Simulated assay, not measured.
Amino acid sequence: MLDLASLFPFQLDTFQLEAIEALNQGKSVVVCAPTGSGKTLVGEYAICRALDHGKRVFYTTPLKALSNQKLRDFRDQYGQDQVGLLTGDTSINRDAPIVVMTTEIFRNMLYGTRIGETGTSLQNVEAVVLDECHYMNDRQRGTVWEESIIYCPPEIQLLALSATVDNSDQLTDWIQKVHGPTRLIHSTFRPVPLEFHYCNGKGLFPLLDDSQKKINPRLRERRSPKRGGRRSRNRIDLGFIVSQLQQKDMLPAIYFIFSRRGCDKSVDDVAHMSLVTDEEARLLKEKIDEFLAWNPDAAREGQVGPLYRGIAAHHAGILPLWKGLVEELFQ
Rank of each mutant, 00 (worst) to 15 (best):
S187R: 13
S121H: 10
E146C: 04
H186Y: 15
E195I: 05
E147L: 01
D169V: 13
V128F: 11
M109S: 07
E117P: 03
Y111Q: 12
I92R: 00
E126G: 04
E104Q: 08
L159F: 08
H186P: 01
R183T: 14
F106D: 00
Y198T: 11
I115Y: 08
R183P: 00
N137R: 11
T120I: 09
V165K: 11
I115T: 12
D138A: 00
T164V: 08
M136R: 10
G201C: 07
N108C: 04
T143Y: 15
E155T: 15
T143I: 14
A160K: 09
L110N: 04
D169G: 04
H186Q: 13
M109G: 03
A127E: 08
P191F: 07
P191T: 11
Q170I: 08
S91M: 05
C152N: 06
Q176R: 09
D173F: 03
E147D: 13
P181E: 06
G201A: 13
A96E: 06
Q123T: 15
T90D: 12
D131T: 10
V178K: 02
P154E: 05
T113F: 00
A160Y: 09
D131M: 06
Q157H: 12
N124Y: 12
A160H: 14
L204W: 07
L130G: 01
V100E: 10
E117L: 01
C199T: 14
S91T: 15
D95F: 08
P154H: 14
E126P: 06
